[in-house]
């Protein structure tokens, strides 16, 4: 097993280098540069000397291969450099935003699992019943609604309901407070975005649970268990659900790594100062160092999650051998 993990880790090196090269090239293909974004924003004239000073500051005068080596070398030694936009260490920029995003991602996952697994199971057990149809319709609606639309609507609903209940509209604060400072306020801020993301996430998970359950329910050992006269509940809980969970766990893992994409839009809708919003800002500001670090972070998370999921998978299911 250790050999398998080592092998997988070695295979991830080209992925990381490839992703590094891709983001490096993509960012530099975008016309213009950070100095123009910085100085041109307001429509006044850009002073030529200010532009020159800015270019020197951000190191735009270094050659491309050197810049790439800096980036790879820095990444390998854990030195992510300085954000070209704010002049602050990239690690600090990311660390400031990570708690909000992580909190929402974890909460959304919890929401998704709590909704998806029971409903997906019921849906499979009652295949093609009206219950199944309703559950599937709700699930697919979650996948079909643009996430920003869901977010904007959910705030409006909160505003209207609170006005109806208390006479004046209420919404959570738009100034994030960390969990350890004021847990209640913090929860009121993160709950809506977590639900919005969690709904979509649960829809995907629910569909996977349903089809995995359907497949497992047709396996011989389930028939045997049923034939032995075991209680249906026991069959489902002990035998079917446990085995159906394998692909579901995989999906949850992979989707967790993909959450960053969902956060990009949701954090904008709810005005959260998280990683997703930082990502968009970094790309639009043409902040090479920050974008590169963020891409490498997501790629690394993706690689690690995949590895963990695969190892878990193999560990849970003895039929899979480490190849």
């Amino acid at each position: 097993m250790y050999r398998y993990i080592l092998n997988r880790l070695l295979l991830s090196i080209p992925t990381l280098i490839g992703a590094a090269a891709l983001v490096f090239i993509l960012m530099r293909l975008i016309p213009g540069d950070i100095c123009m974004v910085r100085l041109g924003g307001s429509g006044g004239s850009i002073s030529a000397s200010a532009l020159a000073v800015c270019h020197a500051q951000v190191g735009a005068d270094r050659s491309m291969p050197l810049q790439f080596l800096d980036f790879i070398g820095g990444f390998a030694t854990g030195n992510f450099g300085i954000s070209m936009w704010s002049g602050k260490p990239v690690v600090l920029e990311i660390a400031t935003r990570l708690p909000v995003s992580l909190e929402i991602a974890i909460l959304a996952t919890v929401v998704a699992v709590l909704i998806a697994i029971p409903l997906g199971t019921i849906s499979a057990l009652k295949q093609n019943s009206w219950l199944d149809h309703i559950v599937r319709t709700v699930a697919i609606a979650g996948i079909a609604t643009p996430s920003f639309w869901l977010g904007i609507l959910s705030i409006l609903v909160v505003l209207d309901v609170s006005r109806w209940l208390f006479g004046s509209p209420w919404m959570p604060s738009i100034d994030y407070v960390p969990l350890w400072v004021d847990p209640l306020q913090n929860l009121s801020i993160v709950i809506l975005p977590a639900l919005t993301i969690g709904y979509r996430y649960s829809a995907v998970t629910m569909r996977m649970t349903r089809s995995a359950m359907l497949e497992v329910l047709r396996e011989d050992y389930i028939r045997t268990a049923r034939a032995k006269g075991l209680l249906e509940q026991l069959v489902v809980n002990r035998h079917a659900l446990k085995n159906a969970m394998l692909p579901v766990v995989t999906l949850i893992g992979i989707e967790f790594a993909f959450l960053i994409g969902g956060l990009v839009v949701t954090e904008q809708v709810f005005n959260l100062n998280g990683i997703g919003r930082l990502f968009v800002q970094a790309v639009q500001n043409q902040d090479y160092t920050l974008t590169q670090a963020l891409v490498m972070l997501t790629v690394a998370v993706f690689v690690v999650t995949n590895l963990v999921v695969d190892v878990l998978y193999a560990w849970l299911d003895p039929r899979i051998r480490f190849g």
């Binding site: 994409g261 990502f279 974008t291």
Partner: peptide
Amino acid sequence: QRVMDILMAFPLIIMALAVVAI
């Protein structure tokens, strides 16, 4: 597969943003 890995791991919306910016 390594190329596909890279594209899979790369955040989609960011790639889309970059492509449109270019």
